[in-house]
Computed example of a mutant assay.
Amino acid sequence: MNQFLRYLTAQAYNNAWANHRLLRACSRLSQEEFELATRTSFFPSIKATLNHKLTVDWFYIDAMERAARGDEPHPDYCAAFFEPEEPFATCAGLWAAQKSSDQRLIAYCRQLDEATLVRDVGILRDHGLMLDTPARLLAHLFQHQVHHRGQVHAMLAGTAVEAPQLDEFYSRGEAEDRAHDFAELGFAERDVWGV
């Protein structure tokens, strides 16, 4: 696998790892802190922010999977991915759905090849069909995840739950620091880096 494809796969694993750490922390909140406590950010609660992050994942992952199979773009993306706007009321339900979404993203990145990376992905939007490559869509999706995880991380500062370390990546010397999380996720260093 070339280095760029390996990098995208590593980003998908890092995304899943960061989501796991963040949602583990959020699972320690009371339902009121998770759902009802007003927070300062783009969305007014941790629940709303995490639901938004997940539904956007669904939207883009579905589009990329469809293109990889040679299928047409989803004909009714609003109803399929954004209605209801907040499909999960509890952190437990959201965490399970996020984990499933993260596994789909990893699987998608693992099957990428150089030809697929530059093939157009069609996405229907309000203004019509949008075409973009998986490389650009993945860059957008990873940035979207980082952006909203950062917001939730900051929101946690207003609670008694300690916000987890999220800005560490996969340095060789830090393998022991992530070993417990990787064991919970079923990840191995070789899965991420291929060596």
Rank of each mutant, 00 (worst) to 15 (best):
L50G: 03
R119Q: 13
Q31E: 15
L8W: 11
A37K: 15
T49V: 01
A115D: 09
C26R: 06
C78M: 15
E174D: 05
A139K: 03
Q151P: 10
F169R: 06
E176A: 13
T9C: 09
A79M: 09
E168V: 13
G158M: 10
Y7V: 04
A175Q: 12
A10L: 06
H147F: 15
E33W: 06
L54Y: 05
P44A: 14
L141G: 04
F88R: 01
D126E: 12
G93L: 02
R149G: 06
E65Q: 11
L8A: 12
L137S: 04
W193V: 08
A37M: 11
Y108P: 12
F169K: 06
D132K: 10
D71I: 08
A67N: 03
L54W: 05
L166T: 05
G93K: 00
L124K: 15
A157D: 12
S101G: 11
P134I: 05
Y7I: 01
L138N: 11
E86I: 00
M1G: 14
V161D: 13
Q98D: 11
A48I: 11
P134C: 02
Q145I: 03
V192R: 03
R110I: 07
S100K: 08
V56G: 14
Q98L: 12
L112N: 04
L117I: 09
G158H: 10
A92W: 11
C109N: 05
F142N: 01
D102H: 04
A12C: 12
L141H: 06
L54A: 14
L22R: 09
G158Q: 10
E65Y: 09
P87I: 02
T9E: 04
R69F: 07
R125K: 11
G70R: 09
D132S: 15
V121P: 03
G173A: 01
R24K: 13
Q143P: 01
R6I: 08
L166P: 03
E65W: 06
K47T: 00
R110P: 03
R69E: 15
F82W: 12
T90F: 02
E174V: 03
F59V: 00
H52V: 00
I61R: 10
V121G: 01
G194M: 05
H144F: 02
L138G: 07
H148V: 07
L131H: 13
M155D: 12
R66W: 03
